[in-house]
Amino acid sequence: MPVLVKKILTWGFVAFLIYFVAFRPDGAAQVFKGIGAALMAIFQGLGDFMTGLMS
């Protein structure tokens, strides 16, 4: 991917995040809570898997 296109997409994404957080804070909070919950579930499952291997 050309550098200019990558830069434009990156700045567009940053602008969208700022807009989303500024004008839809409740929606943004729910999205970030969902992402956090998904990451916690993944790491919990990985931890359970590793514990199962060790015992």
Rank of each mutant, 00 (worst) to 15 (best):
M1T: 13
P2F: 04
P2N: 14
P2Y: 02
V3T: 11
V5I: 11
V5G: 04
K6V: 10
K6T: 12
K7N: 08
I8S: 01
I8M: 06
L9R: 07
L9K: 06
T10M: 05
W11C: 02
G12C: 05
G12S: 15
F13G: 13
F13R: 15
V14Y: 05
A15M: 03
A15N: 03
A15E: 00
F16T: 15
I18H: 04
Y19I: 12
Y19D: 06
F20Q: 10
F20L: 15
V21W: 07
A22I: 07
A22F: 04
A22D: 01
F23G: 10
F23S: 14
R24T: 15
R24Q: 12
R24S: 09
R24C: 13
P25W: 06
P25L: 09
P25E: 11
D26K: 11
D26F: 15
D26S: 11
A28C: 10
A29H: 07
A29L: 12
A29S: 13
Q30V: 14
V31R: 02
V31Q: 06
F32M: 09
F32I: 10
K33D: 12
K33Q: 14
G34E: 04
I35R: 01
A37I: 07
A37N: 08
A37W: 04
A37M: 08
A38P: 02
L39W: 10
L39K: 09
M40W: 05
I42E: 03
I42D: 07
I42Y: 10
I42F: 14
F43P: 04
Q44M: 12
G45K: 01
G45L: 10
G45I: 05
G45V: 05
L46I: 09
G47E: 08
D48P: 02
D48R: 02
D48A: 12
M50I: 11
M50N: 08
G52E: 03
L53F: 01
L53P: 04
M54E: 05
S55N: 12
S55H: 05
